[in-house]
Structures are given as C-alpha cells and as structure tokens.
C-alpha cells in the first residue's frame, strides 16, 4: 500500500470529520448544547443540495454547455444550497431546542433530548418523503487525478481538503476579528460573565447554531463526493464528529482540529494495514479514543476546570 495514498486519504477524512467536530464543539462551548441533530442537518442539507442541483441541471447545461464553466456553476449552486439549508436547519434547531428551554432547569440534558427527537423526526421524514434510495450529487470538483510532488490524488480529495482548510480558516478568522465573534468567544470563556457585560445569550446562540448548521451542510456536500446522499447518511458523520469532539475536548477548537487529524490518519493507516483492513477501522478508532479519555478525561485540548460542567 502506498504511503502517499494513505496520507491523502487521511487528510481527506480529517477535513470532513473536522467540519463536523468543530460544529459540535463550537455549539457546546458557546451555547452549552450537545447537538444530536447534527447528523440530521447533514442528511437534510445533502437532500436540499440534491434538489437544487436536480432542478437547475438542465438550465445550466443549456446556458453554458458542457465544460468547466458548467461544473463550477453547479458547484456554486450545490454548495450554496447545502450551506444555506444547513444554516436554515440550524435556525430551526435554535427555535426548537434552544429558545424555549435555555433558561429552564436541566438544559443540557433536555436540549440533548430535543435534538435527538429532531434527528429522529428528520431521518424518518426524509425516509418517508424520498424513500431509502440513494441520491447522487454532481461532482463539483470534476473527475480526474492530479500528481503533486509525486503524490497522486483525486480531484474531490484535493477539493475537500482545500475547501475545508479555507472554510475553517475563514470561520476562525471571523471568530477572531468580528464583533459577533468576540461575543461568541466571550460566551465560550465565561457564559455568566458574558451575560453580565451585556451580551445577549439568544442573539449569540442564533448565529452559532446557523454557522454550525452551515458547516454540517458543507461537510455533507464534500462527503457526498465520495459517498451518496441517503436519509441515514448523517448517522456515521454524527457519531464520528461527536467522538472527535470528545477526543479533542468538548469546546476546544484546536483540540477538535487535532482530534480530526489524528482520527483521520488513524483510520487511513488502519485501513491500509493488510491484516487489519477496513473492518477494524471503527474498532481501532474507538479503542484509541477510550484510551485517550481514560488518560485525559477531558480530551486532548480539554480544559479541566474552565470547561462547562
């Protein structure tokens, strides 16, 4: 097995898991909510993107003909639809799971339950409306291979890695420089202190839920370049995202990035080792995560005392 292929695979997986894990981590640290509907957001945005692409395909083909331009326009439409619907879904989660109960007792567990219910309802609703048949998204990065520095990689892998890097960079930049980002970071560090200095919990939680929803939507588009869109396609990314967020320490963005990279490479390496193979990937991942959590109960980048209880 070629090391360079393993490397690219690992980076690809790390990119997509990172998008999911950072969404979960960000939401937990700023709002104090474990979003179990992240998988539902993932699946629903995949379907929204598929619907948008399906509706506009003929039109775009007629307007631009076959070529790079069509691919890029379709990519734009798919990404916008996915991210936009993800953000909308995030707003729905905000309305159902945050707004009515965020000042009531036992909020973390109750919001977990509500988001679980949203997840259940969305998956069943999709299954009911679209049926269990898988849908195929347009290849937004085209098909083909590229040789860079002697490493060969598929377009969609390169695209996913680059797009994730750019998006995560933008999000982190926005968190660092904008006024809203400052408020969100204040919420993450000390929710009570933030409230006392006049930051509204409600108006901070809305952009965070929408942002994490949009990230899940983007992850759906990027992952759907390799797998298909189906009603239950959100379950695996949700579990992976959750466990990576745990591994990185809930609430720590650098930890989530590190966790995503470690898990991505671990999966690629275990999958590449001949006598272990694909079937032991999940097993190895979880054993690794459990070991890390027993040694460091709050994960890699977790803060012991400052973390939300």
């Amino acid at each position: 097995m070629d090391i360079s292929v393993t490397f690219i695979n690992g980076l690809n997986l790390a990119a997509i898991y990172g998008l999911m894990a950072i969404g979960i981590s960000l939401l937990w640290s700023s709002v104090g909510m474990i979003n179990m509907a992240h998988g539902a957001t993932f699946a629903a945005s995949g379907y929204a993107a598929w619907l948008a692409a399906d509706a506009t395909k003929a039109l775009v083909l007629a307007a631009f003909g076959k070529g790079v331009l069509t691919t890029s326009v379709m990519a734009g439409i798919t990404l916008t639809a996915g991210a936009g619907f993800g953000a909308l879904f995030g707003a729905v989660i905000y309305l159902l799971a945050f707004l009515p109960i965020h000042d009531k007792p036992n909020f973390p567990v109750r919001s977990l339950i509500v988001t679980l219910a949203i997840n259940l309802a969305t998956v069943q609703g999709l299954l009911w409306y679209f049926g269990p048949k898988q849908k195929n998204l347009p290849k937004i990065f085209g098909t083909g291979k590229l040789e860079v520095l002697g490493i060969s990689a598929r377009y969609d892998q390169i695209g996913a890695i680059l797009a994730t890097t750019v998006i995560l960079g933008l999000v982190l930049f926005w968190l660092r420089v904008s006024r809203k980002g400052l408020e969100i970071r204040a919420m993450m560090q000390n929710p009570e202190g933030a409230v006392l200095s006049g930051i509204s919990v409600r108006w901070t939680a809305l952009p965070v839920t929408m942002l994490t929803g949009a990230l899940a939507g983007l992850a759906a588009i990027l992952l759907s370049q390799t797998i298909f869109v189906s009603p239950t396609s959100g379950t695996m990314p949700l579990i992976k995202g959750l466990t990576i967020a745990l591994l990185g320490g809930l609430g720590s963005v650098p930890g989530a990035v590190a966790g995503a990279i470690i898990i991505g490479f671990l999966e690629a390496i275990v999958g590449a080792i001949p006598f272990l193979g694909q079937r032991y990937v999940l097993f190895a991942t979880f054993v690794f995560i459990i070991t890390v959590l027993i040694i460091r109960p709050r994960g890699i980048g977790g803060l012991l005392d400052e973390a939300r209880k």
């Binding site: 973390p108 977990l112 579990i239 466990t243 097993f283 979880f286 959590l293 709050r298 209880k309």
Partner: peptide, 25 residues
C-alpha cells in the same frame, strides 16, 4: 471502568460509540 473518570455527557457519547462498535463488530 471509564464511568468514574468521565462525567455526564462525555460518558453518554462514549457509550453510544460503544453500541456502534458492537454493531459493526
């Protein structure tokens, strides 16, 4: 074993992952 060291939601998510391992296994 990990239940005394991990708390609350960490443990919940971990055990959910355990169920998934069992299924795949």
């Amino acid at each position: 074993l990990p239940s005394t060291r991990l708390d609350g939601l960490y443990y919940a998510l971990l055990t959910m992952g355990f169920a998934e391992i069992c299924r795949v296994f």
